[in-house]
Amino acid sequence: MSQTGWEHFYHMADIGIRGRGRNLSEAFEQTALALTAVITEPELIQAQQAVDVSCSAPDHELLLVDWLNAIIFEMATRKMLFSRYQVNLQDHQLTGRAWGEKIDVSRHQPTVEIKGATYTELKVAQHADGSWLSQCVVDV
């Protein structure tokens, strides 16, 4: 995987999501895309409607989980899926925006709803080249 991108990693019962970015905001955005990809292919989702979220936590790791859980909450209550994310970070305060559309079961063929982001395999780290990685396991 290059400096920017997302992937899933192995967890027997659930699924691990990982994002990389040139900065922490981008890593968080990519991890959110990995979250979407647990449910369906992000390319199938049209970025029609924007939803704003904000959260804060005492450290980067808890903030990642909060960010993902904020998206999970919006997906669950708005019955939406998101394919584009933007994150702004200031200290431990996050403001983010997610673009997506209402779930269309026949078109999106969503596999599974996500219950929550967990602290399992939770990691937010900066590499020597300055790029960032952020990951955790989500419960499905």
Binding site: A57, P58, E61, L62, V65, D66, N69, I72, F73, A76, T77, K115, G116, A117, T118, Y119, T120, L122, D139
Partner: peptide, 30 residues
Amino acid sequence: RGLGHQIGTEFLKSMAITAGQHDIRLPDRE
């Protein structure tokens, strides 16, 4: 359903944050 998932999510965080105040040393945050 969603109610249980959200309760789990929120209390996992508050328990992780307050563990130190209760002198609980966690081998892992989870």
